[in-house]
Measured scan of single mutants.
Amino acid sequence: IDVRFTVNGLDVTVRVRTEEIAERVKELAKNGVDWREIQRIAEELNK
């Protein structure tokens, strides 16, 4: 599942395995978490 969001004007796409992880990623993006941090968290959750 590809999750797309915009952080500080940057369009970011993170690929995740499940809808649940996708929701977590969207939540982080909404809360203004840095995209590199979101990427790292997504990689952890995908394991």
Rank of each mutant, 00 (worst) to 15 (best):
G32C: 02
E23R: 14
W35G: 05
N8K: 06
E20T: 08
D2A: 10
K26T: 08
R24I: 15
F5W: 09
W35E: 04
V33S: 05
R15Y: 11
V16S: 02
D34A: 11
V16I: 02
E44A: 08
Q39D: 04
V3P: 01
D11P: 11
N31S: 14
W35V: 14
G9I: 01
V25D: 00
E43L: 09
L28C: 04
F5I: 15
Q39P: 01
E20P: 04
N46P: 02
V14Q: 02
V16T: 04
R24C: 11
K30H: 10
E20V: 09
G32S: 06
N46S: 05
E27I: 10
E27Y: 12
R17E: 09
R17M: 15
E27A: 12
N31Y: 08
R36S: 12
I1F: 15
I1L: 10
A22Y: 05
R24M: 13
F5Q: 01
R4Q: 13
T13N: 07
A29P: 00
K30D: 09
A42N: 01
D11E: 15
E23I: 12
V12H: 12
L45M: 12
D2H: 11
W35L: 15
A42M: 06
V33D: 03
D11Y: 11
R40F: 07
R17H: 10
R40A: 10
V12L: 11
G32K: 07
T18N: 14
G9S: 04
R36F: 12
I1E: 03
Q39N: 07
I38V: 06
T13G: 04
A29I: 15
V16G: 01
L10A: 09
E43Q: 09
R40P: 01
A22W: 04
V33T: 10
N46E: 04
L45F: 06
R36E: 14
F5S: 01
R4D: 06
V25M: 06
E27N: 09
V14M: 12
V25H: 00
D2Y: 15
L45R: 02
E44G: 05
A29K: 05
A29H: 13
V16F: 03
F5L: 15
L10H: 14
N8D: 14
G9H: 04
L28Q: 02
T6Y: 07
G9A: 03
E43I: 10
D11W: 15
V25P: 00
I41F: 08
R40K: 11
V7C: 05
V16H: 00
A42S: 06
D11R: 11
K26C: 07
A29M: 11
W35N: 03
V14G: 00
L45V: 02
V25S: 00
E19N: 11
L45H: 03
R24N: 04
I21R: 00
R24F: 11
T13W: 11
E37S: 08
L28H: 04
V7P: 01
K30N: 11
V12R: 06
Q39G: 06
R40E: 07
I38C: 02
E23F: 12
R36I: 14
R4T: 14
R36Y: 12
R40M: 10
L10T: 13
R24P: 00
V16D: 00
L45G: 03
V3N: 01
I21S: 03
I1C: 05
V16C: 10
E37T: 13
R4G: 06
E43S: 09
L45T: 02
D2V: 14
I38S: 00
G32R: 07
V14I: 15
E19R: 13
L10P: 01
A42R: 01
D34W: 08
K47Q: 14
E23Q: 14
L45D: 03
G32Y: 06
A42Y: 04
E44T: 07
R36A: 14
V7T: 06
T13E: 06
A42W: 03
T6E: 09
R4I: 14
N46K: 01
A22H: 03
A22P: 00
V3C: 05
T18S: 10
E23L: 13
E43W: 09
E23S: 10
I41Y: 07
V12P: 00
T6G: 04
D11A: 13
V33W: 09
L45Q: 03
K47S: 14
V16N: 00
E37F: 06
T13F: 11
G32I: 06
I21F: 05
V25I: 15
V3H: 02
A42G: 02
G9Y: 03
V12D: 01
N46T: 03
A29T: 04
A42L: 09
I38R: 00
Q39T: 11
R17D: 05
I21C: 02
V3T: 02
R17N: 13
N46G: 06
R4V: 14
I1G: 03
R17A: 15
V16Q: 00
D34P: 14
R17G: 07
E37L: 10
E27F: 12
V14C: 05
T6V: 13
R15D: 02
I1A: 03
L28W: 06
G32E: 06
R17I: 12
R4N: 12
V14A: 02
V7S: 10
